[in-house]
Design a protein around this nucleic acid. Structure first.
Lengths: 210, 210
DNA sequence: CTCAGATTCTGAACACCGTATAGATGGGGG
DNA sequence: CCCCCATCTATACGGTGTTCAGAATCTGAG
């Protein structure tokens, strides 16, 4: 079943291996090195083979995103289960996302480049992250129950925490945050305090509607 | 001097027009539609012509980034001049960045995709954003003088504000923030409160070193 | 004004890319 | 057992980044 000049004519698990090969290739040589032909070559098949499993290149990348989002969501769910309060869960989410991006940069690089997966044509990729957003929303609602987030529409707070995580991850993957700043992923109590402060800011401002 | 089947054999200002055409093309058809040949065609010139002004495709995109960063920096400088405190300046920075991304998405899309400009091979693009970071750092130092940011290394606070801005802009350009959340760019007092709260969190935590 | 040299652009070429198609291969149901 | 059909190969087409020889034009020195 593995690659490496396989013996059988049929691959057996080409679809899954194309997804894995994409992730590995991004992590080894960067997103700029990823092409359908290259991924196929890496899996030991001809350039046309992927088209029996994916409609086009964007569909392959959409499948990578679906897999990565499921992985991330399960880690986020685990992080929330270990948290003892909504605010703690939010801090854990950001830390978990940053750690996930460091451990699986291939998935995250693709998640952050929607032009490669054409979410408008591949709705499964567009909706892949919704489970994670639901978790985030639930944690914000917990905060509202605990009085640590303003009542009303939780979406502004969700968007802000989400943006903070995406920003940290982006700057991390691109390099500048690694070079200039402290490793935010390994200082949980500081980050939790920052998330708390963020929600406090949301509370003190006239948020909820704007 | 304009494009559109020019009369003269020599273009006259091809370098600048290639940069502008890149930005326009991104804004009109998205980053996926941008290729060197297409940009050259848009400027009314043969595929080989750009190579007399740029070493390769990445060099053209690096020049776009340099121009966009200068534009952004001047707007950030203006925002800081109008602020009456360090914290207010930080809020103004984030709002200005978000507004800039909405008004000039072509520049920002390229700034957020370093694999297209190869910053390692084109150091001018790598250092293009440093002026803006210096402004951000100066504002954080102002906060430290005002007692609204913790003393010591300002970089953790700089990184956090920077990440927040990048995250909001990324989610905005990619769509999800537009669909789900409130327009954070038009609610200055709320955002300022959030930045204040962020710095308060940095202060209360054991920040500065980690 | 003339004309040589440097600069800018064209057009053809190369390898690689995404994608489509026709045909070879072989595993699974009658 | 054998035929069907999903899977894979081989090949082809247009588009892309890049190179290069040569044509067109600008420049400035005489």
């Amino acid at each position: 079943m593995p690659a490496e000049t396989r013996a059988t004519y049929h691959h057996g698990a080409l679809r899954e291996e194309l997804i894995s090969a994409s992730v590995s290739l991004i992590e080894a040589e960067g997103i700029g090195a990823v092409s359908l032909r290259r991924v196929a070559r890496e899996a030991g098949v001809s350039p046309g083979a992927p088209y029996h499993h994916f409609a086009d290149r964007a569909a392959l990348f959409a499948a990578v995103i679906v897999r990565g989002s499921a992985l991330l969501e399960s880690e986020l769910r685990q992080a929330r289960a270990q948290a003892t309060s909504g605010v703690e869960a939010l801090g854990a989410f950001v830390r978990t996302y940053v750690r996930f991006a460091r451990e699986h940069p291939g998935y995250v690089h693709l998640m952050l480049r929607p032009e490669l997966s054409h979410p408008d044509r591949h709705p499964d990729a567009a909706h892949a992250g919704e489970g994670s957003i639901d978790l985030l929303t639930a944690a914000v609602v917990d905060c509202q129950r605990e009085g640590t987030a303003p009542p009303g529409d939780p979406m502004p707070a969700v968007g802000l925490v989400w943006a903070l995580a995406v920003g940290i991850v982006t700057l991390w993957l691109d390099g500048p945050l690694q070079e200039r700043c402290v490793d935010v992923g390994t200082t949980p109590e500081v980050l939790t305090a920052q998330i708390t402060a963020l929600l406090t800011g949301l509370m003190s401002g006239s948020a909820g509607r704007a």
